[in-house]
Write a protein that binds this DNA or RNA. Structure first.
Lengths: 146, 146
DNA sequence: GCATAATGAGCGTATATACGCATTTGTCAA
DNA sequence: TTGACAAATGCGTATATACGCTCATTATGC
């Protein structure tokens, strides 16, 4: 058992969530003209990069709960940015496929994303941005099961 | 105008959101027995630290949209962990006050929080955790208005 | 003192997040 | 073969997040 501590105002999770909120607002505002949020753009670009995948596979890749991804797909499917096709071999699965329309929207949105990313790096410093990304990847990959 | 870039798989915002999700799950699971989520514990402990505040004031302190905070208060108010009192001087405002019950729950939950924070630091390394917090504070404080 | 501007907060709406349970389909061993 | 188990997904529920609009109240300028 670890010693009890009281410096909860330095909670790693709370500051992480704060930073995620701030960054999300910055990126979403910059992306506003594209009609996509950063959360949606990340789905489309990941799908574009890895090719058609099932919900579970894409959720694993994106470090997202599968039920969360499933619900996040709704707006993208409604707008026709991706298609959900029944698996052929295994009829339990659903293949997620980026549509032409989805690819066009994603590629266009990347211009705004580029602006957002660049201004982010300018705001905190490029070296800091690089160091931050490295640390965040460790947070994502780490094992917390003690 | 910055040069167009295509390395969107290195999006600072997306990795930040991933890390926030992973950390939130770790903390929420560790806190589960307390009946509080880390987002809720952070409200109670902040209020405990800074004393009674209006919604706008607390939202500013916590780097939260004021409408988000307003809605997040509902479960805490329902459980009797905090009271929402009408402002005396300015009747537009609402004072948020931590109740005895809320303080008791928060203090108890801090034991679990301590475990979560410690195992987080062990999982990524203490030095990394310290460096990460410093960088995240910069993200929160930075000016992105170009 | 009153008309107007500014401020504090709520609500409508939409999306994001994830846990637990249920359903459908596939696999594998007796 | 069939019954048990496993896997993929959906759904109910609850919370988190924030933008735009509205309402009530306060502050301010003339």
């Amino acid at each position: 058992m670890a010693a009890k501590r009281t410096d909860i105002h330095r909670c790693a999770c709370t500051i992480l969530r704060q930073a995620a909120r701030v960054a999300t607002q910055h990126f979403d505002r910059t992306l506003a003209t594209s009609g996509l949020r950063i959360s949606q753009l990340s789905v489309l670009t990941t799908l574009r990069y890895v090719g058609p995948k099932t919900i579970n596979e894409l959720a694993e890749i994106m470090v997202l709960d599968r039920t969360t991804l499933g619900r996040n797909l709704k707006p993208l499917e409604r707008e026709g940015y991706l298609a959900v096709e029944a698996g052929e071999d295994d009829r339990r699965t659903k293949q997620l496929v980026l549509t032409k329309k989805g690819e066009k929207v994603a590629v266009k949105a990347m211009d705004s994303w580029s602006d957002a990313q660049t201004s982010f790096e300018q705001a905190i410093g490029l070296d800091n941005a690089i160091a931050l990304s490295k640390l965040l990847r460790q947070v994502v990959k780490a094992d917390y099961t003690k």
